[in-house]
Design a protein around this nucleic acid. Structure first.
Lengths: 175, 175
DNA sequence: ATGAATGTTCAGTTCGAATTGAACGCAGAT
DNA sequence: ATCTGCGTTCAATTCGAACTGAACATTCAT
């Protein structure tokens, strides 16, 4: 059961405006819409973000159909997006005896995984750039500057990876 | 003048394969192609990334026409992408007396700016989520869990911002 | 058996961002 | 005056990702 029983579709992102009634379902809708936008920066689809938003807000597990209904999207979309979110480890699929529906809940390592993935990608880029740098023949005088700049870029990404890792530690620290 | 005078177009991303001649122009092409792919994760267009790649590799300023020719893209694309890169502060436009061409070079604060922008975006998201959390009526028992989870997300983004800022310091440290 | 509910698949559609290319304005050169 | 080279603009095009919706297989209920 969702927190307040009935929710409107969360299709329109909204800023807090004058006269808007601040019901919890309005806030929920705003949050879901916000998450839909945020994740695009991480290369995910809007629906994935809205699903995450809904599941984070509600906390508990929600059914496949509920997701389709409350987000106002096709079952096909839920199916496809749930598959990648489960694969990523962001959400978990639950099945209950005597109930054929699939249920999904936000994974408790959801954030952890995001940071882990991010760190990995940064390190990956760093090493790929470094490999290119090493392929520059060391005898080549013209290439010295290029190698220096490529190494700088490689260090750049490595530094980000370290920073993210520290964020990870920081978060684990206070649970 | 570019480092080795003449370069092929860098249209096809390449891995280091058997039998590939490791000339500096091949490495350059690979790097440009790699940058074209990398920046898409940051929401920039491929051509922007390739321009950055070319300018980072060469180090010196390159002309508007050179960019169009060497990347094999239309002048319209160079114009549009250069505009946003300059606006972002990633590259700098130079003009030389007695030469009507525009020249571009990689900005020395190029990396700095990326991190600054990233930090800003993380903090922005963090505060937007926190605002939503605060709008949840404190009397609402059902909302307590939601508020806790939203605050967790807000902290998450704040931690990333801190991590990135530390990366920034780390990089400034050794120039 | 028939029907209803559930999740998956896939062909089709939509939609927007990226890119092109032609037209344009401008500035020097001939 | 004309021409050429330069960068900008904008309408048209391309291209791919996201989403839909119908068809399908499966399972359970009647």
């Amino acid at each position: 059961m969702p927190i307040h029983g009935v929710y409107d579709n969360a299709l329109t992102p909204q800023v807090h405006e004058y006269g808007m009634s601040d019901t919890i379902s309005t806030i929920r809708d705003d949050f879901i819409a916000l998450m839909g936008q945020m994740v695009e920066a991480h290369g995910m689809s809007p629906i994935s973000g809205r699903m995450l938003g809904l599941l984070i807000f509600d906390g508990e597990a929600r059914s496949f159909s509920d997701l389709a209904t409350e987000l106002g999207v096709s079952r096909g979309s839920i199916s496809a997006n749930a598959r990648v979110l489960v694969a990523r480890g962001s959400i978990m699929k639950e099945n209950r005896p005597g109930d054929r529906q699939d249920y999904f809940r936000i994974s408790d390592q959801s954030f952890e995984i995001i940071l882990q993935t991010l760190t990995q990608r940064m390190l990956d880029i760093s090493s790929r750039v470094h490999e290119l740098s090493e392929r520059i023949p060391s005898g080549d005088a013209d290439g010295a500057g290029a190698r220096r700049r490529l190494d700088g870029l490689s260090n750049f990404y490595q530094a980000i990876a370290l920073g993210v890792r520290q964020a990870q530690n920081h978060l684990n620290q206070d649970q």
